[in-house]
Amino acid sequence: MPIQDVYMKCIILLTILYRVKYNSVVAVCQLSVPHGNNIYNFSLTSPLSNYPHGVLSEDGFYKVAANGTVLWFQLCDGMVFNHDPPRCLDCQDCGGSSHCGMGCSALIANQLGGYYVCTTIGRSSNTNINLIDEKNPSMGVTVRMSSGSRLTNCSLSVSVLCDSNGLQGPNSLDKLGMCEYSTVLRHPSGCAKTISRHGRGWGWFSTLLIILLCLFAGYLVGGAVYRYFHLGIRGVHVIPNLEVWLTLPHRVQGLFRSLIRRFRRPTEGHRSSYSPVNF
């Protein structure tokens, strides 16, 4: 096989894999919620002016430490370490010893007996997104990821608060259960794009117009059925008040003409109909 064909197939395969991964990431980190007269759309991976990758850390990971515990995580994708990689034991299910942290989206290290022991607490494939406060959608969203392990039920919840000023945090780490953690992140990606629903659907005028048209159609059909079966009328005369409908265009045309004549300004001929009088 020519080497050009091999290169071309490799490029096509990598493109397909990238699109599949990108589409799955985008689908995970999107949320659309109707609330009141508005629709709140969240897209955490959409590029912003100062954040081309959205909420994704450009370092490849976020890091926070508290009380002898170290947490690494990446939102909406797997972690990538070009510097400061995790140094802890038992990292087999998250990249192994040589690529620790690069096989999951959240990894935590607890100090036990003088050593840091790793635990996978999140994967991008086990991620969902919900509102922080259903009564206040503009507050932001919570991204929850879990390890998906049968042995340990671990998870990480990251509250992405709306903050148009820029990225802040994470600065805290809370332990909610045996293997459940949470942290807070302020980011412009947590701000929803609001779409008003006033212009969508049927307004009161459109609804009234539809009702009037339905009533008119019912009148025509009911009248035609009555005239056909009870009065024995055939042909176009089965339509009730046919003469009125035939003369209706002429009546409308005459009405418009009368309105035009009423609002039209007097012409120059009318103005000069009287000759000036010299005293």
Rank of each mutant, 00 (worst) to 15 (best):
I132L: 15
H99A: 12
G78K: 13
T152K: 12
L107H: 10
V55A: 14
A192W: 03
W245V: 14
A65F: 01
A106E: 02
P47H: 08
Y274Q: 15
V25W: 02
N241S: 13
P2A: 09
N41G: 04
E58A: 12
D59L: 12
R197P: 03
F256T: 07
G201P: 07
M1F: 10
V221Y: 10
L259I: 15
P137Q: 05
G201Y: 06
G254K: 07
Y18V: 01
G169M: 06
I211Y: 09
K193V: 13
I210N: 07
C104E: 13
N165E: 11
P2C: 05
I195T: 11
M178I: 05
T69R: 09
L156S: 00
T119C: 02
N278P: 00
L231N: 04
H237A: 00
C162S: 13
G114K: 09
K21L: 06
P86S: 04
V158K: 03
E58S: 13
M1L: 11
V236M: 14
I121R: 07
N110V: 06
K135P: 00
Q92E: 15
W245Q: 01
W72R: 06
S146F: 01
S206I: 08
G60I: 01
H230Q: 09
P34K: 07
D133A: 14
G103A: 11
G199W: 12
T120L: 10
R150H: 03
I210Q: 05
V117W: 06
Q253G: 05
Y226F: 09
I16K: 02
G223N: 08
S32H: 02
S275H: 05
Y51P: 04
H270F: 12
V277Y: 10
S147Y: 03
H99N: 14
R262H: 13
V277R: 13
L213T: 01
F279P: 15
I12P: 03
D5Y: 04
C94Q: 11
N110E: 10
P137C: 06
T142Q: 15
G68C: 06
N126K: 04
E58V: 11
V6A: 11
S159V: 00
S49M: 08
N50P: 01
D59Q: 14
L75N: 02
H230W: 10
W72L: 07
S157H: 03
